[in-house]
Simulated scan of single mutants.
Amino acid sequence: MTAPDINSPDEQIRYQRGLEVLNAVDGGSAPAVMENLADIAPALAHHIVAFGFGDIYSRPGLDPKQRQLVTLGILTALGGCEPQLEVHIRTSLNVGLTPTEIVETFTHAAGYAGFPRALNAITIAKKVFTERNLLPVKDD
């Protein structure tokens, strides 16, 4: 079985759609992620954009805030995804989630994913909030 040609017209349409969505929510860190993969896994970089954002994030039914809440919950539950969680905390702020909503998401996740994973997520959130001068978190 051969891998799909990431340069085919159909793949490029998916990729361009994904870039539009990614640029709308990301806040500028996506190019660095894609460049970091270019020399070792260009197809993975392509699929992150084409599938992740061109196919999944561009679907109707959930707005960007709702998608980020789901993503934060899943990454917290999975554990071991702290670099991706950091990116998605930034993205969550970019699409309008408040620090209080993000912290509440991790607090809620503690009941399902456990306190260690929720604490790991809060640690990453504190780092991002500190960088953006959003501490202390205030009730909205």
Results as ranks from 00 to 15, higher is better:
13 I>Q: 10
135 L>P: 01
105 T>M: 10
50 A>N: 12
57 Y>F: 13
106 F>L: 13
50 A>T: 09
132 R>A: 14
118 A>Y: 08
23 N>T: 14
130 T>R: 14
116 P>Y: 10
133 N>L: 11
60 P>Q: 11
86 E>I: 09
124 I>Y: 00
94 N>S: 03
102 I>C: 05
52 G>N: 13
27 G>A: 07
14 R>E: 00
138 K>W: 01
55 D>Q: 13
123 T>K: 06
73 G>I: 11
50 A>K: 07
84 Q>T: 12
75 L>K: 15
87 V>A: 12
22 L>V: 05
15 Y>E: 12
109 A>S: 15
108 H>G: 08
40 I>W: 08
66 Q>A: 15
82 E>C: 14
134 L>F: 04
15 Y>T: 06
79 G>Y: 12
29 S>W: 13
126 K>F: 07
39 D>K: 11
74 I>P: 02
107 T>W: 12
138 K>G: 01
52 G>M: 09
16 Q>S: 12
16 Q>D: 14
14 R>K: 10
12 Q>T: 09
135 L>N: 06
61 G>S: 03
25 V>C: 09
43 A>L: 14
16 Q>I: 07
25 V>T: 08
14 R>F: 01
31 P>V: 02
86 E>C: 13
72 L>F: 14
35 E>T: 07
70 V>W: 13
119 L>W: 04
52 G>Y: 04
96 G>N: 04
56 I>C: 03
67 R>P: 00
63 D>M: 07
69 L>T: 11
70 V>Y: 12
101 E>C: 05
14 R>L: 07
5 D>F: 09
95 V>P: 04
29 S>P: 15
126 K>M: 11
98 T>L: 06
115 F>W: 15
58 S>H: 10
17 R>C: 10
55 D>V: 10
125 A>T: 11
83 P>C: 15
44 L>M: 12
39 D>P: 02
41 A>N: 07
119 L>R: 00
23 N>Y: 13
34 M>E: 10
3 A>N: 13
138 K>N: 06
104 E>D: 08
17 R>F: 12
120 N>H: 08
124 I>L: 01
89 I>M: 00
52 G>T: 05
139 D>M: 07
38 A>H: 03
50 A>D: 05
46 H>V: 11
26 D>I: 01
71 T>R: 04
36 N>C: 03
11 E>L: 12
90 R>D: 06
106 F>T: 11
67 R>I: 00
106 F>H: 13
89 I>E: 00
50 A>I: 04
135 L>T: 04
91 T>R: 05
138 K>T: 08
27 G>D: 04
83 P>W: 01
139 D>V: 06
13 I>C: 03
82 E>R: 15
13 I>G: 08
23 N>A: 14
107 T>M: 15
15 Y>P: 02
57 Y>W: 15
